[in-house]
């Protein structure tokens, strides 16, 4: 049996670890709350933009009189030859299976698109590191490039997730739009962890371009949370005082949905078609911005859950070690008594 001193040393070490994991859990919970608030604050703009686009789409003037079609470079459908995949992971680890799951989904996507030219843009250090090990880094391919079909890493954003600001999303969106308009890419997908609340999360592959329908994200693939994950997330959230349900936004949502859609005859300063052309690119920026905000919230939630599990495991180990230590001590005392007693008997 191990000696008491050794066990005591191990208990002390596990206790220290538990202190760290517990602190990390609380920090993640605080960051999660902040991330949720930011996502909430970003809702009105996104919804108003969606609302005005929807109301513009419902107007006849913006359709081409000859073909009756809605014309916009971002609505153009081409055979999918060159695909851009934007992968959003975290910058840091220790978040359970968060990064691994996203990258698994990305790899599945790449498998499904094999035979096509796929370019990857990685946001987040973890994803960048993983993808860079597997694929060549290359310059974005031009429309008339003769380079062989391949999967390449064409861009990365690392260390930006700490403080997500809108320009990050809008610059990325502008770059994507320019390439799409020039027919360098035929479709754009986004892989990320969607986050509505601690218990309403899923991993999605969303088609950004071509735009299918405004106000309804085109989800190509979604993986829901497993029951076991949900249970652990609930426990962790309750322990850290994080709300399980998303805040009630019905009233604000209703107001936003009425934006530019009041039952009145608006004067249009610009023709609706011009407005539509100017607004649609912003819709893309907003979708990316939201994906980033939600991914960050999901990452903090995943870390919070992972650290809760780690803390529980440490507690269990401390209990087991304490028991072992007491047994060892008892055994030692018993042995000593036996020695004394048998020594006395020998006299």
């Amino acid at each position: 049996m191990a000696n008491v001193l050794d066990i005591r040393r191990r208990i002390r070490s596990v206790t220290n670890t538990r202190q760290i994991t517990r602190a990390m859990k609380m920090v993640s919970a605080a960051r999660l709350r902040r991330a949720q608030e930011r996502a909430l604050a970003a809702r009105p703009y996104a919804q108003m933009l969606t609302s005005v686009l929807k109301s513009l789409v419902s107007r006849a003037e913006i359709y081409d009189p000859a073909s009756g079609e809605l014309l916009h470079p971002l609505l153009v459908r081409r055979p999918e030859q060159n695909v851009l995949l934007v992968v959003i992971t975290g910058d840091k680890g220790l978040a359970g299976a968060f990064n691994a799951n996203i990258l698994k989904a990305a790899m599945r996507f790449l498998e499904a698109k094999s035979g096509k030219n796929v370019e990857i843009e990685a946001i987040g250090r973890k994803g960048r590191d993983f993808l860079r090990r597997r694929f060549k880094t290359a310059d974005p391919r031009g429309a008339d490039s003769t380079a062989p079909v391949a999967t390449t890493l064409v861009g990365e954003q690392v260390g930006v997730l700490n403080r997500i600001e809108y320009p990050l999303a809008s610059e990325l969106a502008e770059r994507i739009i320019r390439r799409y308009t020039h027919a360098e890419i035929d479709a754009v997908y986004l892989v990320f962890n969607e986050f509505k609340s601690v218990i309403a999360q899923r991993l999605v592959v969303e088609q950004l371009l071509p735009v299918e329908q405004i106000g309804a994200p085109a989800i190509a693939e979604a993986t829901e949370m497993r029951l076991e994950e949900k249970k652990r997330a609930i426990e962790a959230a309750r322990g850290a005082g994080v709300a399980l349900r998303p805040a009630d936004t019905r009233e604000a949502d209703a107001r936003a949905a009425a934006f530019a859609a009041a039952p009145v005859d608006y004067i249009y300063e610009q023709p609706p078609a011009v407005l539509f052309r100017a607004l649609l690119p912003k819709y893309l920026s907003i979708q990316i911005f939201h994906a980033l905000l939600e991914s960050v919230a999901a990452e903090h939630a995943a870390r919070m859950t992972a650290m809760e599990s780690a803390t529980n495991n440490a507690s269990e180990m401390i209990d087991a070690l304490t028991l072992a230590m007491n047994r060892a001590r008892q055994a030692k005392i018993t042995k000593e008594i036996i020695e004394i007693v048998s020594g006395a008997a020998a006299l």
């Binding site: 530019a260 005859d265 608006y266 004067i267 249009y268 610009q270 407005l275 100017a278």
Partner: peptide, 14 residues
């Protein structure tokens, strides 16, 4: 530039 006072006619603009 647009000047807006209360009671302005419904308008949408970029």
């Amino acid at each position: 530039y647009l000047g807006v006072l209360p009671g302005h006619a419904p308008l949408i603009t970029e």
